[in-house]
Design a protein around this nucleic acid. Structure first.
Lengths: 207, 207
DNA sequence: CCATCCGCCTAACCGCGGTTAGGCTTTCGC
DNA sequence: GCGAAAGCCTAACCGCGGTTAGGCGGATGG
């Protein structure tokens, strides 16, 4: 009877170590910028030597790639299903906005990195990350279009509204602080009101 | 009243050369990322040798600093005076949104650099750039607050609305393309409607 | 018309940092 | 238990790229 049956497996511990490195590296990247962080810096923060990182990642860029994956694949897997749930487009959009902001909060360090350091990815990796982002954007545009057809949303152009909404939401991780100003819940509900209720024009459809 | 007779003045030509280097460097930074661009790359694009750049700038970071200055100081000098003009807060805000987007367009290359490469600035330079940004943000928040007092704007929280508006606007330079989709004028007037008319709630106050 | 400085050059430096080589200890699966 | 891999170590490499040194021609302004 092992205490941690799952975490004791060799592959599972390896994966945990990888995730620890990715999380630690993301924090360092966010603080000082990808280019100004050396492999030895990441290793120090984890508690090992620089060269030992190469037992987990083939290159520094692979670590950045892992960070970027968590902020583009996770939202696709966790948030987008909300758009397939039952309910009006306005309600489904509001659910997505909430999930989107909460993911930006939960992974705010990784999001800061993912938004600025895209240029340091290899062309193939960047193409994949871009694909996720574009897919997410397309799904949001589709629900906005659906809301326009159902009459709940009254924006002049679905594509323009999509850009506006996503840029406004994604900016959140750049300025939010836990220790001052509005609380997370304040921001989430305030943004639902500003975005879905006002910008998209579904004021009555949410209550 | 000293008037520049021609570009033949020694100091004037020096300044033009500097601006040419900054513009060229900004384009290269935007394409490949600051860290992946060498002094020799910038020099090649200008048509001189790498070491010759040091007759115009003391360090690579000074070039980045010059790029960042044009996208934070220029909006303060050119856009903010519109907030001091006559008119209701709603109209003044609409004017600012238009000027802001047109500046993002005119300097879109520099804005792309300024938004992601902040981490490569020296602490002093970053502090100055941050200061300009914060001042701009404060002025926008002030006009939104004024609009709330005058009753034109009905947002729940001025600070939250400020973040939302500026993040939405600044995202523009990241996705706009001249050769496809909406025209610049379409975006400008569409965003005025979405931001001032809908998000801030001044639908009637603009006509 | 001349002294001067500007602008650019060639050549080289040199330190940082990503990466590799190779070996030791520990630990897990069988 | 035992072989084998995982995981980490020390040591060193080495190329890239920011930066410096020092010189040359030609425009400039007095």
């Amino acid at each position: 009877m092992t205490q941690e049956p799952l975490a004791s497996s060799r592959t599972a511990r390896t994966r945990l170590r990888r995730e620890e490195i990715v999380t630690t590296a993301a924090r360092t990247f966010a603080d000082r910028g990808y280019a100004h962080v050396g492999m030895r810096d990441i290793a120090d923060a984890v508690g090992i030597r620089g060269a030992s990182l190469y037992h987990h990642f083939a290159a520094k860029e692979e670590i950045l790639y892992a960070v970027c994956l968590t902020v583009t694949r996770e939202p696709c897997e966790e948030n987008l299903p909300l758009l397939d749930a039952a309910g009006t487009p306005a309600r489904r959009t509001a659910m997505l906005v909430r999930a989107h902001l909460r993911h930006l909060y939960r992974r705010r360090v990784e999001h800061l990195v993912g938004l600025h350091e895209m240029a340091s990815l290899s062309p193939e990796h960047r193409a994949e990350i871009d694909g996720h982002r574009r897919y997410y954007q397309r799904r949001v545009r589709d629900v906005i279009t659906a809301g326009m057809r159902s009459g709940e949303f009254t924006v002049p152009d679905a594509q323009l509204a999509t850009f506006g909404v996503l840029d406004m939401l994604n900016g959140f991780s750049g300025w939010f602080r836990d220790d001052r100003g509005l609380s997370l819940d304040d921001v989430v509900e305030g943004y639902v009101e500003l975005v879905v209720g006002r910008m998209l024009g579904a004021r009555g459809a949410l209550d």
